[in-house]
Simulated assay, not measured.
Amino acid sequence: MGWFDGMGAIISALFANDAWTLGDALRANPQALWTLGFLVTVLGGLAVMAIYRAVPFIERYFEPTIMVVSYLTIGGIIFMGVIDRFFLNGQPPWSTTVPPFLFLIMTWVGCSYNVKLRTHLAFAEFRTIMPRTGQFACLLLDAVLWLGFAWIVIVTSTQETIGAAANFRFMAGTDNVMQWWFLISVPLAWLLLSGRVFQNLADDLRNYRRGDVMIRQAVIGGDA
């Protein structure tokens, strides 16, 4: 079976709006799944980069807003859970299960934002002493590795999300909140990350051609 065989079945199952059917299509066409995942990673990342360039407000504030809202929501749920438990003799059963999923959202969206800031194992001190060609090669390697990671995570986390939807997994402690509502944030966050990778790669190509500085010191928690 070729790498593209079965892609039509997956796309048809997607538009059927049935998670069980989609899950069956993914399991029946694993090679097509990885091919489609690669296309989504690359084309989706380029689309995200285009959106960021077209709307600077989104580029600057979208990820930080999600991180801050998730963090404050986690803190609020935990705080109210403590008050309910020790002072009101009760605690919502979901107060210990929802925060980890919100942390999942905050973590991977934050990962995308830090790719923008280049604070993930940048080794700037080592790279700054390399010749320009070596610096560019390292930056290109960064892009290839990040896109490879994104490809793997998008495919595997999408499978897990569809499995959760197909099996009607509810959030523990609730009877109407689905797990896949939160799990889908993982492939979406890595799609944002792939957009940041292409954004950085475009900047690196421009700097290399113009003779500008290639490696800058990254600051965790800084702005760019």
Rank of each mutant, 00 (worst) to 15 (best):
L88D: 01
F86T: 03
I66G: 08
G81Q: 02
G90R: 04
I74G: 08
T96G: 01
E63A: 15
I83V: 15
L88Q: 09
P92V: 05
G76V: 04
L88V: 06
V98K: 03
W94R: 09
P93D: 12
P99S: 06
F87K: 11
S95L: 02
G90L: 03
V82D: 01
Y71N: 07
G90K: 02
G75M: 10
M80V: 00
F87A: 11
P100G: 13
I77A: 03
P64A: 14
V82K: 01
P93F: 04
P92C: 02
P92G: 04
V82S: 03
R85E: 07
I83Q: 08
T73G: 07
R85F: 13
N89Q: 10
P93N: 06
T96M: 11
E63N: 13
G90M: 04
T73S: 13
I66K: 12
T65K: 10
E63H: 14
V82N: 05
F87P: 09
P64C: 13
I77L: 08
G90D: 12
P92M: 04
F86E: 10
M80Y: 05
S95Y: 02
I74C: 02
P93C: 00
V68D: 03
T73L: 14
I78P: 01
F86Q: 07
T96N: 08
V68N: 09
F87G: 05
L72E: 09
M67S: 07
T73N: 07
P100W: 14
F79K: 01
Y71V: 12
I83G: 00
G90N: 10
P100H: 13
T73W: 05
G90V: 04
G76M: 07
G76W: 09
G81P: 09
N89M: 11
P99H: 12
V69C: 11
Q91I: 07
D84L: 06
T96C: 09
V69F: 12
M80D: 00
W94I: 04
T97K: 07
G75N: 05
M67N: 10
L72C: 09
G76L: 12
G81R: 08
E63R: 15
I77D: 02
V98D: 00
V68E: 03
P99K: 10
G76K: 08
P92K: 06
R85N: 11
P64L: 15
G81A: 03
Q91L: 08
P99M: 09
I66P: 00
S95I: 01
V68H: 06
P92A: 06
I74Q: 05
P64V: 14
P64K: 14
P64R: 15
V69K: 08
